[in-house]
Design a binder for these strands. Structure first.
Lengths: 339, 339
DNA sequence: CTGAAAGCGCTTACAG
DNA sequence: CTGAAAGCGCTTACAG
């Protein structure tokens, strides 16, 4: 007897104590729980029953140490992203957590900026994770450099230069190409493009899709209609002014926050949508939900991106061969704003 | 010699190997690193130097096991929150991560809903965390029940019934009381209140502040102007219609998402702000940034809430006595929408 | 000031 | 099918 009756409920057993109580070795208890190694059905049942009624909960950290695993994966989030991106990251996070939990892995958070990846460094130094998922990639991404140096398995949601990392992404190039094509085929010629940080891979890919669509249809691109590296209401407002001057027929924004700024400016100028100018955006987030008129948008399944990235990462961590690149689909949602 | 020259760079040492290389015991190495126990300055310097040049990084998991700690705290986030709340949670998260990292703790994510707290249960069962921070509280909060049962130290950002948990919050009652007072003292009498889930403590507190302000000034509350449990554009739109019918002079929304719906409806009805109806909101998030006219709002320092909750939790985990309740400040930002 | 040894709570060859 | 023992990589009384 190890504990008094009164405290039995709250007692946290160790595997040693369980073994002693049952009169077996801890090897046996371990096997009954893990399912590894031969063990008689009867013994297993006895152990399982005891564990159940006495609420024995194996210490995952100790288990990890014995197996040289942490059962943690690191999740790198940019701490400097815009509000409009939040729903995207939130959904990624949900997908990642779900998949990780299904294999009894936990998710350790690391917030970084492009200037400061020290938080991730700390986690890697402490060896608190068996793998890492990063949720945004930039050109010369310091997170990726760090991860490659470390030699830890990792996945990115997005893409990067290197070949080894697992890269899961929506096909932004193709999505933007299709959206642009549709607009061009409607006879809309002067399509303005309002984009964010051109050092983000995702921006580059989208721009490429926009250019591809024009090339395919043999329609020359008017470079002055392409406005990258936009941020803030003043800059976007100015760009909208200039685009209107240039006779733009449609303004495609690379994210919903930019689109919101475009919409505010158009409203201020009393430009009616879609009569005078058509509008399209990305992400289809709640930020633009309920807008009048409803806004044409691309949609990506962020949760599925998270799930997939996590699944592939776990497989690679388990030593399986996994494909390095995977593009998930997207949807074009046509609404009144481009009618 | 343990390793060949070529692989030396990448070699991950154990404390045992470091000790052997230096010809000291691992006790000594441990002491040199932790600073605990007596050790000669010279020995310490020698150990430190070796560690530095050979890139020895103590295994935090093993350290944790030896100390019966995990060096992790759990962060419970509702996975079902609205977009407008995201910046708030994001900032909390940043504050928590920052404070945790400063004490070499990591943050393990747990996404739950009011219906499903199984993810948190898993983490508690695995004993992967030494303490927990929850970022939203509801009446009969299942997260809090679980945490109290478990007997783990925890903090909430928000408030709850129990007395033991650490509760860090903005003073929502007082904030809403002050905002309402200001409006009442401007001579505005019929103030509509559009609120969210009335089972959320934060909603209750705000409502109380609204009522208090009226009572203090001896102004009767028109119950029909109070609209709790609002969500979705249809319901909010209908409430706005009805409030206007009732001759409302100002509409206070309990969060920026609700306020956005109110604004959309007012715009649709061509009601001008602030001439015909005044408008105020909470959070002062980017969701309403750039709105014309600018919206009067309360502001809370979410990052500081996160920092503080984490700091108090870490202190309690270290066995210190800490105050259970702490209210942080807020700001009232008066803008054109209530002119 | 320093070290040998036990311990944190598990897993897993190895032997029987 | 089962168990004794070594090991995962640390910390920490205890003794010297």
């Amino acid at each position: 007897m190890i504990v008094s009756r009164e405290t039995e409920e709250k007692r946290i057993y160790t595997i040693d104590e369980v073994a002693r109580e049952l009169g077996v070795s801890k090897t046996t208890v371990s096997r009954a729980i893990s399912g590894k190694g031969r063990i008689s059905a009867e013994t297993r049942a006895r152990v399982k029953a005891f564990i159940e009624t006495h609420n024995y909960r194996p210490n995952a950290v100790a288990k990890g140490l014995a197996q040289s695993k942490t059962y943690n994966i690191g999740l790198v989030l940019p701490s400097d992203y815009a509000v409009s991106d939040l729903p995207f990251f939130q959904k990624c996070m949900a997908g990642i957590c779900e998949m990780a939990a299904s294999q009894d892995y936990d998710v350790v958070l690391s917030l970084v900026t492009e200037q400061d990846v020290s938080h991730l460094k700390r986690i890697l130094n402490n060896r608190k994770v068996d793998g890492v998922i990063s949720t945004r990639t930039t050109v010369n991404d310091p997170v990726i450099s760090l991860l490659r140096e470390e030699g830890l398995p990792f996945a990115v949601i997005g893409c990067c230069d290197a070949r080894e990392p697992i890269q899961v992404d929506s096909d932004h190039r193709e999505a933007c190409r299709e959206l642009t094509s549709i607009l061009l085929m409607k006879g809309i010629r002067r399509i303005g493009l309002v984009g964010g940080n051109s050092e983000h891979w995702v921006s580059k890919r989208r721009l490429q899709g926009y250019l591809d669509a024009h090339e395919e249809l043999g329609i020359p691109v008017a470079q002055e209609l392409v406005r990258m590296d936009q941020s803030g209401d003043l800059q976007v407002g100015k760009s909208v002014d200039e685009l209107l001057e240039l006779g733009v027929e449609c303004i495609v924004s690379m994210d919903d926050a930019l689109c919101r700024l475009v919409l505010l400016k158009l409203q201020e100028l009393h430009v009616s949508i879609p009569e005078q100018v058509k509008v399209a955006s990305f992400y289809n987030s709640t930020l633009l939900e309920q807008n009048l008129p409803p806004i044409t948008s691309l949609e990506f399944d962020a949760k599925e991106l998270g799930r997939t990235a996590c699944k592939l990462l776990l497989e690679r961590m388990a030593g399986q061969e996994v494909s390095n690149q995977l593009n998930l689909g997207y949807q074009v949602i046509l609404r009144e704003s481009t009618k």
